[in-house]
């Protein structure tokens, strides 16, 4: 039964995305909508991303100072560990899990609300390809701006690590910066951007799917919104593992 339901949803999801890949009725309208979504997803999420990433960087650094403080590991390794943990895992995964909650629920509720208020039907009657117009600009916007947010998150997180260790005197400025400069593997940055783009696609496509097929009233809209967050979060974790397997 559960497998049947999963296969049914997977088939419907694939069909919806196939319908979404279509020539725009009017390029300028799609462009305008994509810009609007970039603003909503990108600019609208900057504050929460900054807040979370600075604290993650601070906590990571403080924890490692505590754990490695009495060991033989050179103290500049703290900067190196904070940098790599941030780039490989914390910035893309934690940021996207947070965005799954913020952006994913928002998209599912927006499209679900349009379904319930017959806005989608109204557009269909006008001849608009609603799958394309309502979904594709959101996916494009997210795949462009979420990697940017992740890059900002990585930078801010590393700065957070600096603030929480260098300012209280746990590490010197030279030690932290030396750590940041040591053993740098450019491939990890590539991996960070791959993860960010894949997670952005998952968040938007899954959330739009949940909203597009929302039925009933406010309770069902709430369920669609919750499912969007839960499913996209689980998929982020699964794909995080798969990308790690493929790229390491």
């Amino acid at each position: 039964m559960v497998v049947d339901k999963m296969l049914y949803n997977l088939g419907r999801y694939v069909n919806l995305l196939r319908d979404a890949i279509a020539r725009p009725e009017k390029f300028s309208m799609y462009y305008k909508e994509t810009m609007r979504q970039m603003d909503a997803i990108g600019v609208g999420s900057v504050f929460i991303v900054l807040l979370i990433s600075v604290f993650i960087g601070m906590v990571t650094a403080v924890q490692f100072v505590d754990q490695l403080g009495d060991s033989f590991v050179p103290s500049y390794y703290i900067g190196y560990i904070v940098r790599d943990i941030t780039i490989i895992e914390m910035a893309p995964t934690i940021t996207c899990l947070v965005l799954a909650g913020k952006v994913g629920s928002n998209l599912a509720a927006e499209i679900g609300g349009m379904r319930q208020k017959e806005h989608i039907d109204a557009m269909e009657i006008m001849g608009v390809n609603t799958a394309a117009y309502l979904i594709m600009p959101k996916i494009i916007a997210a795949v462009v701006v979420i990697p940017m947010l992740v890059a900002i998150a990585a930078f801010v997180s590393i700065v957070g690590g600096y603030v929480s260790t260098v300012l209280p005197g746990s590490l010197s400025h030279t030690e932290y910066v030396l750590g940041l400069r040591s053993f740098f593997v450019p491939r990890y940055v590539f991996m960070m951007f791959v993860k960010a783009a894949v997670f952005a696609y998952l968040i938007t496509s899954v959330s739009c799917y949940m909203g597009y097929y929302a039925k009933g009233g406010s309770i069902e809209l709430g369920e669609a919104s919750t499912n969007a967050v839960v499913v996209s979060s689980v998929l982020i974790l699964v794909f995080d593992f798969l990308i790690a397997l493929l790229l390491t």
Binding site: K117, E118, H119, D121, A122, E124, I125, M126, G127, N129
Partner: peptide, 19 residues
């Protein structure tokens, strides 16, 4: 089908105006 639909106008029960 979209060509035909472009010849249609529809007034919905709840108006379906974009808020």
């Amino acid at each position: 089908l979209r060509e035909v639909r472009m010849k249609l106008g529809m007034l919905f029960q709840g108006n379906a105006l974009f808020d």
